[in-house]
Measured scan of single mutants.
Amino acid sequence: MQRVNMIMAESPGLITICLLGYLLSAECTVFLDHENANKILNRPKRYNSGKLEEFVQGNLERECMEEKCSFEEAREVFENTERTTEFWKQYVDGDQCESNPCLNGGSCKDDINSYECWCPFGFEGKNCELDVTCNIKNGRCEQFCKNSADNKVVCSCTEGYRLAENQKSCEPAVPFPCGRVSVSQTSKLTRAETVFPDVDYVNSTEAETILDNITQSTQSFNDFTRVVGGEDAKPGQFPWQVVLNGKVDAFCGGSIVNEKWIVTAAHCVETGVKITVVAGEHNIEETEHTEQKRNVIRIIPHHNYNAAINKYNHDIALLELDEPLVLNSYVTPICIADKEYTNIFLKFGSGYVSGWGRVFHKGRSALVLQYLRVPLVDRATCLRSTKFTIYNNMFCAGFHEGGRDSCQGDSGGPHVTEVEGTSFLTGIISWGEECAMKGKYGIYTKVSRYVNWIKEKTKLT
């Protein structure tokens, strides 16, 4: 034993070699072989497995989906700052455009905790909710729209109204504003409101030439003092309507412009014939205590009207009353817009006519005020429907199939267009061939041609 100890002390290297040989010859039971080890760690190889990531292109799944990435790591994937920024906006807080917040056709661009709407022409605001041009839906104005110097929408209202708090709607500024039905039992019968379409306001006024200088022999019209197929109006439903009495009662109609003036057809009036105007009328054979009678003290036909040349060209006249009318729910003026808007309103496509005229061709006159909704007829169809001249200051309205029309005794009465609950004068009943005849239409004086003249002559002093 002493000898062994001496050998170990003198030859430590020998001992180490012996131990190493023993270990190498022993069977290893701690580690699995290569094949079995792979069965336990069965993990798919990654895209760049075996390579240094710093030297390969980034992978979106590896960089940002398996674990949260930084902007720089995302930049490695896209290799483009702009594309990385677009991805980053949604990656950080989701897609803010998912709810489609942009209105009126706006395009949404996502941002971090926010979004941006790219608005089409005519709109602005956070969600493109603000109209900035009158060309689109009248700028959301209830009545009139004008573009300011910086191309912003400025709404306005006709006389007797003021802008509401929203700067879009119009509200009454006087007790009985024009064009409004205020009798409670008839307010439910107000005709369907007309909503502004998209309009090209630059070209809204037709490029028409008034044929002022045409000389033409007097034409022989049949029954051209021209509501057939209409309905009984309720008291106060058309408070701007008046009836004219002269040699015979209810020979023509008219509309209240203001307390002192009536507008009617020029062919209705004769110099030297006494005319009485009755406002607030409903049943011409009954006294309903809503009527107001006034005498006409002055007749002003349009300066281009000449019955000797043509009885229905420039067929418009103004009547001055001896005493002002007292405005109330049964006696209310009709609204008159400017030339541009009167023309736009007419193009809405349908209007209402009213009167006490004959209820059928050569038949009896109506006792109760009649009204009828009539569609506008395109000019080409209008011209083809008659052998008589249709001037540019006239328009056609009615039904091709016949059966409904204005008729004798309705002449001078109103053709009105309702705009968001307020009625505007767009025409004056003038003439036609018979009444409600198939293929024939009622012919009306186009008020847009005469609004400046009306307003100039009827100013209240």
Rank of each mutant, 00 (worst) to 15 (best):
Q2D: 04
V4T: 11
N5H: 13
M6L: 12
I7P: 12
I7S: 05
M8N: 08
M8Y: 13
M8F: 12
A9H: 08
E10W: 12
L14D: 01
C18K: 02
G21C: 03
L24Y: 06
S25A: 05
A26L: 03
E27W: 02
C28S: 12
T29P: 00
F31P: 15
L32N: 10
L32A: 15
D33L: 07
H34I: 05
A37D: 15
N38A: 09
K39R: 07
K39M: 11
I40W: 05
L41I: 11
K45L: 10
Y47T: 15
N48R: 05
S49K: 14
S49D: 15
L52I: 10
L52R: 12
L52C: 15
V56N: 13
G58C: 13
G58A: 09
E61C: 04
E61Q: 12
E61N: 07
R62H: 12
M65R: 05
E72M: 15
E73W: 04
R75K: 13
E76S: 15
F78R: 15
E79I: 12
N80L: 03
T81M: 05
T81G: 08
R83P: 12
T85Y: 03
E86L: 09
E86N: 15
Y91C: 15
D93Y: 12
Q96R: 15
Q96S: 14
E98C: 07
S99F: 14
S99W: 13
L103N: 12
S107V: 11
S107T: 13
C108Y: 02
C108H: 02
K109Y: 04
D111E: 04
S114V: 05
C117S: 03
W118D: 14
W118Q: 05
P120V: 10
P120C: 04
P120I: 06
F121C: 05
G122Y: 07
G122Q: 09
F123M: 13
G125Y: 02
N127I: 11
N127V: 11
N127E: 07
L130H: 09
D131P: 11
T133I: 12
C134E: 02
I136W: 03
N138D: 12
R140K: 11
C141H: 00
E142T: 10
Q143H: 11
F144R: 00
N147S: 07
N147Y: 10
N147C: 09
A149R: 07
D150E: 06
C155T: 00
C155L: 00
T158R: 00
T158E: 04
G160F: 02
Y161H: 03
R162M: 05
L163C: 02
L163P: 04
S169T: 10
C170K: 00
E171P: 03
P172S: 06
A173I: 12
A173M: 11
F176N: 09
G179Y: 00
G179E: 00
S182P: 07
Q185G: 11
S187N: 04
T190W: 13
A192I: 06
E193D: 10
T194E: 10
T194H: 13
V195C: 15
F196S: 10
P197Q: 10
D198L: 07
V199M: 07
D200G: 07
D200L: 06
Y201L: 04
Y201F: 09
V202G: 07
N203C: 11
A207C: 09
E208T: 13
T209H: 08
I210G: 12
I210W: 12
L211I: 09
L211M: 09
L211W: 13
D212K: 06
N213D: 06
I214L: 04
T215R: 07
S217R: 07
T218D: 09
T218M: 04
T218V: 08
T218C: 10
T218Y: 06
F221C: 13
F221P: 12
N222A: 05
N222G: 13
D223E: 07
D223A: 08
V228R: 08
G229S: 12
G229C: 07
D232I: 09
A233F: 11
K234I: 09
P235M: 09
G236C: 03
Q237D: 05
Q237V: 08
P239T: 01
W240E: 00
V242L: 02
V242Y: 00
G246Q: 04
G246K: 05
G246P: 05
G246W: 07
V248T: 05
A250G: 12
F251P: 06
C252W: 00
G253K: 10
G254H: 01
S255Y: 01
S255H: 01
I256V: 05
I256K: 00
K260R: 10
I262M: 01
V263D: 00
T264P: 00
A266D: 00
C268R: 00
E270Y: 05
V273I: 04
V273Q: 05
I275R: 00
V277A: 09
V278G: 03
G280C: 01
H282P: 10
I284T: 09
I284E: 07
E286R: 08
T287E: 11
E288T: 05
E288P: 08
H289K: 11
T290F: 04
T290Y: 12
E291D: 04
V296A: 05
I297M: 07
I297P: 01
R298I: 01
I299R: 05
H303L: 05
H303P: 12
Y305Q: 02
N306D: 13
N306G: 04
A308Q: 11
N310R: 08
K311E: 10
D315S: 02
D315Y: 01
D315F: 01
D315P: 01
D315Q: 01
I316W: 01
L318R: 00
L319R: 01
E320T: 01
D322R: 03
E323P: 04
P324F: 02
N328E: 01
S329A: 04
S329T: 13
Y330C: 03
T332C: 06
T332K: 04
I334H: 00
C335N: 00
A337D: 01
D338W: 03
K339R: 10
K339T: 13
E340R: 14
T342F: 01
N343R: 08
I344C: 10
I344V: 04
L346V: 10
K347L: 10
G349I: 02
G351N: 13
S354N: 09
G355T: 08
G355V: 12
H361V: 15
G363D: 06
G363F: 11
R364W: 07
R364L: 09
A366F: 13
L369N: 08
L369F: 05
Q370G: 12
L372H: 14
R373H: 14
V374L: 06
V377W: 03
R379W: 13
A380H: 07
A380G: 14
T381C: 12
T381R: 11
R384W: 05
S385R: 14
S385V: 15
T386R: 13
K387N: 15
I390W: 05
I390C: 10
Y391F: 09
M394C: 05
C396L: 02
G398F: 04
F399V: 13
H400K: 05
H400T: 14
H400V: 15
H400W: 07
G403M: 15
R404F: 08
R404L: 09
R404N: 05
D405N: 11
D405A: 04
S406P: 12
D410K: 11
G412D: 03
G412V: 07
G413I: 15
V416R: 02
V416C: 09
T417M: 04
T417P: 00
T417K: 01
E418S: 13
E418Q: 15
V419T: 05
V419C: 04
T422V: 09
S423N: 15
F424M: 00
G427K: 00
G427A: 02
G427T: 00
I428C: 01
I429G: 12
W431D: 10
E434K: 13
K438C: 14
G439Q: 04
K440Q: 14
Y444H: 04
T445H: 07
K446T: 06
V447S: 03
S448N: 05
R449Q: 15
R449S: 15
W453F: 06
I454V: 08
I454D: 01
K455V: 08
K455P: 01
K455S: 06
E456D: 13
K459I: 12
K459W: 05
K459L: 06
L460W: 14
L460C: 12
L460P: 14
L460V: 03
